[in-house]
Deep mutational scan, measured.
Amino acid sequence: MAEAPPRRLGLGPPPGDAPRAELVALTAVQSEQGEAGGGGSPRRLGLLGSPLPPGAPLPGPGSGSGSACGQRSSAAHKRYRRLQNWVYNVLERPRGWAFVYHVFIFLLVFSCLVLSVLSTIQEHQELANECLLILEFVMIVVFGLEYIVRVWSAGCCCRYRGWQGRFRFARKPFCVIDFIVFVASVAVIAAGTQGNIFATSALRSMRFLQILRMVRMDRRGGTWKLLGSVVYAHSKELITAWYIGFLVLIFASFLVYLAEKDANSDFSSYADSLWWGTITLTTIGYGDKTPHTWLGRVLAAGFALLGISFFALPAGILGSGFALKVQEQHRQKHFEKRRMPAANLIQAAWRLYSTDMSRAYLTATWYYYDSILPSFRELALLFEHVQRARNGGLRPLEVRRAPVPDGAPSRYPPVATCHRPGSTSFCPGESSRMGIKDRIRMGSSQRRTGPSKQHLAPPTMPTSPSSEQVGEATSPTKVQKSWSFNDRTRFRASLRLKPRTSAEDAPSEEVA
């Protein structure tokens, strides 16, 4: 009796068929016929556990003709996506030579605008209408194809895939403007070719909807975003200037109206006075309405000098805001240009540092100066060695804690006790272990408590650290204090090793 083939788990290929790579489910599931010992083939499952149809090819690079078809379809799909992405970037994010197409579109729109203006002049109306009709045909074809291509290429973005995504893309403001202008152009052409009475009025009214094509030149909205950011950044200043200017306008108009309503027919109503105030304070000055009385002229002159300053403030605020924003954008561009080279330089330096163990090129690091100058660790070890030599091999803490019996001779020589300023008595072995921070803190506390006492003391002649007598400086308080830590004499004296002298005989010792 033939044995059933062993159940295979995992992703390994079956024996005897090495080139074939078959994806098997996580659990080997066989058909009921196979479990019962029949000759049925096992049921194939996909990666998600769903059964595959009987005629479906197995996924994998070596699955025969199905694999070749899959490779061809995958390559075609990649080319399709690449083309779609390229078209989308050309239309929505132009760079380099892609601006040539947008310059061509701008020339078409500008020519249409010029011809629309010439069509309103009686001398050039006939020729402009003929040229404009031909140009409209060209623009309908160009913009119609462009609109379709834009909607198709938007599928390269995830949020615009599918018919719902394309509809979302078509609802964008600039796409809506394109659609309105396209419909208006078709209506103008249809009305112009019919030759009816309505054609002339339709051409004159709907052609100027094509002015909206100038708005579509900035599809990404960079200028509007820049203007919005400047207004938002200086909103408080703008609101303040406009508010005060509006108050000056209504008060000036009302007072001039009261002064001129009886003697001047131009100011017969408050609305006429508001019109005069707006034209005057905005420095336009049509001259259609002028005050005639001396009181009205004085009020107009005073409020004009006051109001023009507030009406001119928004222009200066926006101008300075634009300058600052442009400078910030230039700085951001320079930062973006330098970020990648800086990151590459840091990575290269780290690779060199991690692979080169000698690091002989590091001549400006802490390790280099640590090898030249005595390190703080060596100074600490030197302090501890000196203290243990004086205390008979014991550390200062051990000397303080060691009990001394009554009447027993002390094995240590008597030492002079010292007192730290602002604290109780402490171990004499710690007097010379006072660090730089303690010395600086002690000097600052003395300056806070009594700076007036220092200038009363007789001035001391500054001497070099080499000429100081070591026996005289029994305490860190003898170090000359200065008002600034930048004094080199104080810094050098604080680094010197001060020996400890006994109370009975204080021989001067120098520590090399």
Rank of each mutant, 00 (worst) to 15 (best):
V151A: 14
R171S: 07
R207S: 14
G39C: 13
Q84E: 03
R204G: 04
P57R: 03
Q329P: 13
N89I: 13
L249I: 05
R44S: 09
V230A: 15
L23V: 05
G46A: 06
I239L: 01
T280S: 03
G66A: 03
R79H: 12
P13T: 04
S31G: 05
G16E: 02
Q194L: 14
V176G: 09
F198Y: 15
Y257F: 00
F104Y: 07
S205T: 08
S50N: 10
P94S: 02
V181M: 03
H124D: 15
R81L: 09
G64S: 14
I140L: 14
L23I: 03
P19R: 11
G40D: 08
L113M: 02
P19L: 14
Q71K: 07
E35K: 07
G37S: 10
P15A: 02
L107M: 07
P19T: 14
S63F: 05
G66D: 09
S31N: 05
A263G: 05
E92D: 12
E35G: 13
A187S: 01
Q30R: 03
R7G: 09
I134S: 01
K236R: 00
H292L: 06
V181A: 00
F311V: 00
N85D: 14
L313V: 15
S116Y: 07
A128V: 06
L45R: 11
E32Q: 03
T290I: 05
P5H: 14
A184P: 01
F137V: 13
S31C: 13
A98D: 06
R219C: 06
R95G: 08
V183G: 09
F254Y: 11
N89T: 13
I134L: 04
A187G: 09
S268A: 03
S153A: 12
G12R: 10
H124Q: 06
E126G: 14
R159L: 13
R79G: 11
H292R: 10
A315G: 04
F143C: 01
R204C: 00
D17E: 05
K172T: 01
G10R: 11
S73C: 08
G40C: 06
T223P: 00
R171G: 14
R7S: 01
W86S: 07
L313M: 15
P61T: 12
I121L: 01
W294G: 08
F254L: 14
S185L: 01
R82S: 06
K325T: 01
R43P: 04
H234N: 09
A304G: 07
P15R: 07
V181G: 00
R213L: 00
E32K: 05
L209V: 11
E35D: 08
R82C: 03
L345I: 03
R7P: 13
G228A: 05
Q122P: 11
A202T: 15
Q210L: 15
R219P: 11
L48V: 10
P19H: 03
C131S: 07
P59L: 03
Q347R: 12
V138G: 02
A252T: 01
F169Y: 02
A259V: 01
M1L: 04
Y232S: 03
A342G: 01
Y80N: 10
W86R: 10
V256L: 02
A56T: 02
E130K: 09
I180F: 14
N344T: 11
Q33H: 12
G195V: 01
S119P: 15
L118V: 03
L133R: 00
F198V: 01
L47F: 05
L145M: 07
S201F: 00
H77L: 07
G39S: 02
E123D: 12
K225N: 00
G221C: 00
C156W: 00
P341Q: 15
Q194R: 08
I197M: 10
F311L: 06
